[in-house]
Design a protein around this nucleic acid. Structure first.
Lengths: 205, 205
DNA sequence: ATTTTTGTTAACCATTTGGTTAAACTATAT
DNA sequence: ATATAGTTTAACCAAATGGTTAACAAAAAT
């Protein structure tokens, strides 16, 4: 009956280990034994805390997705002006990615595997990314004539692509361009300013 | 000794099946039995033609990667003017993705899993994407003053991101925006013009 | 025609892997 | 001290999975 009065850390250690293994190996590639080893505990303990692999995976995936998407929503649905919104989005997103570089790949990977499952299950219609306000905001600006005529959808694609893609392709890009970890970090840091500038240069009249 | 005088199709059927299964499930998620079923042949025949799973996977991956990257190289290393190069790249890339939508995700996915392995093995220094000429070309244009001051690296990231990202995030994006297959296709078709325009609007003086 | 090589299969095998069990250990309450 | 509930482990189990074998069928070579 008494629950979690004291946590020596077993459960937390499992979660940390599972996070690491799932994020790098994906659901299919992850091994329960690897997670146990990584956590420094017996494999059976995994099943003691989390019934089975699916449950454990879902816990991790949900946790990661939920700490990630709401932030975006908040920005997209804020009352900021368009340019500030773009700036905020790029800034926050890149910060998040710097701390958690495997996240976007992980999310998209599992989503590719079984789109139905996650879009329904993980985002309970509550925190699913909703760019509709952002899109209509662009349209409004176009009509007002403050920015050039551009399709909101394409601007969204551009914004997302420029921001997220480097992190997804990191291994390929860095290896191919001979960048090291630090160079990549600084490049991404620069992009916080480069991307908004690039967009504004393109759409402002 | 005589090899492939006639191909009833077993080998081809295996390759087609393996392509399908590997592209959608990844190396870790793919099951040899699934490939056999998909090909309509006995599982043992897989091992008759391709020693083991690794070999089969490598065949597919190599085949896919090699029909994909050289094309890009040709564009990046051509003598076309910068804008034409960008136009060509976007055009060719989107065409390729339309026909083979799982490819970019597949390539990057497996590359994330084990970067060392593929970058050395798959691209034998021959057809590895090499944007260096493209990068220096941008720098030249900047120095000539024909375009705004922009970091070549960031422009490359922007170009790649805007072009490739929608295909990687397709399941997420389409579901979230309520797009169907046709709408997605037409949107991507539009991007062939939208992306070059977006870039030129941003960097031209 | 018959031998030999190539292609194909069903049945099988060994290992991996997710998951269970029963026993042991730890702390807390009585 | 002892019972009790919660925690952890070693040993085990069954299913899944990659891979092998031996027999059989089809084709090619003799």
């Amino acid at each position: 009956m008494v629950k979690k009065i004291k946590d020596t850390g077993a459960e937390e250690k499992i979660l940390a280990a599972a996070r690491k293994v799932f994020l790098t190996q994906g659901m299919a590639g992850a091994r329960m034994q690897d997670i146990a080893d990584e956590a420094g505990i017996n494999k059976a303990l995994l099943h003691y805390y989390f019934r089975d692999k699916d449950k454990l995976f879902e816990t991790i995936f949900l946790e990661e997705a939920q700490k990630f998407f709401p932030k975006i929503n908040k920005i997209f649905n804020s009352d900021d002006a368009l340019f500030e919104k773009i700036e905020n989005f790029v800034h926050e997103y890149i910060d998040e990615m710097q701390q958690n570089p495997y996240l976007p790949w992980f999310v998209m990977n599992e989503m590719n595997r079984d789109p139905q499952k996650f879009l329904d299950k993980i985002w309970g219609n509550s925190n699913r990314p909703d760019p509709s306000k952002f899109l209509s905001q662009i349209e409004k600006e176009v009509k007002k004539g403050t920015i050039k005529r551009i399709s909101p959808l394409h601007l969204l694609f551009n914004l997302l692509g420029m921001t997220i893609f480097p992190f997804i392709s990191k291994p390929m890009i860095t290896r191919n361009l001979g960048m090291d970890e630090l160079q990549f970090r600084t490049a991404m840091e620069q992009r916080k300013k480069e991307i908004p500038k690039f967009i504004m240069d393109s759409i402002s009249k």
